[in-house]
Computed example of a mutant assay.
Amino acid sequence: MILKNKLFDENYIVEEQIPRHFQVSFQEVGNCDKKLVKVVYNNMQQVGDIISDNSYENDFYRYHDIFHYSFAALLGWSPCTRAMMKIKRKSDVLIDEIEDGARAAITEEAISMIVFNEAKRNDFFEKKSHVSKTTLTIIKEMTENFEVKVRSIEDWENAILKAYEVFRFLIKNEGGIVEFDTLKKEVKYYHLES
């Protein structure tokens, strides 16, 4: 049985753990016609692809990886982060396939999109202190077959609202540096240095 506050990967080698402290920078690249974002891990390596909004409108979805990294730090769960950082738990074939595999990653991307659509209708939660009960219930149902099922609706709501607080800073400042502390369950935003 998985305990509520236990880190899901604490019994794995460091190379298969979500880093306990890490930094990710979101840097706008491209031209005025097409805004793109490059994500760099610990000032060293690009993680994931350079992202556009993949939309007819400029809706800032290019910053959506903040949700994956926030879920990793605040919930201890993000198959997308594991894939981007190459920290899947390959030493356990079943965990690699189910918890860190394609279905889990697709589930997380779907959650990100469902929440994004609600957030977009609500000024990215700028003046809201709650995520709709419907959305939170859907998230719990979508994740009931994964280890993250032990996280409460309140845990999810906190992770979502904190991620959107940082998301709004990223939009306002056209990027930034975000520090994550998995142990303290903290996410902090800093301006990019010019």
Score class of each variant (00 low, 15 high):
K6N: 04
K172G: 04
K35S: 11
K4W: 08
F146C: 10
V166G: 03
G48F: 15
K184N: 11
K188E: 15
N58R: 14
Q46M: 11
K184W: 08
D65N: 14
Y56R: 02
E165R: 04
D96E: 04
N117E: 15
E141H: 02
N11M: 13
V166E: 08
A83P: 00
T137R: 14
H130T: 08
V131L: 06
R121N: 04
V131M: 10
L170G: 11
N117T: 12
D155A: 08
D53A: 04
F167L: 10
D59P: 03
F125I: 01
S52L: 05
T134M: 09
K162G: 01
I111S: 06
P79M: 07
E97D: 05
E28N: 11
K184Y: 05
V178W: 09
M85P: 00
S194Q: 07
I177K: 13
E10L: 08
Q45R: 10
K6V: 08
Q23K: 15
V148K: 01
F71D: 02
I177S: 06
L36P: 08
E144Y: 06
S129R: 10
A72M: 15
F169Q: 13
H130Q: 03
M1Q: 10
E147C: 06
E157D: 07
V166I: 15
D155K: 05
I51Q: 14
E147M: 09
Q46S: 04
G48M: 05
F26M: 06
T137N: 02
F146L: 13
L183A: 13
K162Y: 01
K185H: 13
E165I: 03
L192Y: 11
I177M: 02
G175S: 03
A83G: 00
I139D: 09
E154C: 06
G48N: 02
G76S: 10
E57Q: 12
V47P: 14
L170H: 11
D53C: 15
N122Q: 09
F116R: 14
A102E: 13
K162S: 08
S132L: 09
K90H: 13
L136C: 03
C80G: 02
T81N: 08
E126K: 03
K34Q: 10
A102L: 06
I2R: 02
F180S: 08
K90R: 03
L7F: 09
K133Q: 07
K120W: 09
F146E: 00
A163N: 12
Y56E: 11
N173G: 03
L192S: 09
A105H: 01
A110T: 13
R20P: 00
A159R: 08
E57V: 12
A163F: 12
I98K: 15
K86T: 12
G76F: 02
T134P: 00
I106E: 15
A163T: 05
K34H: 05
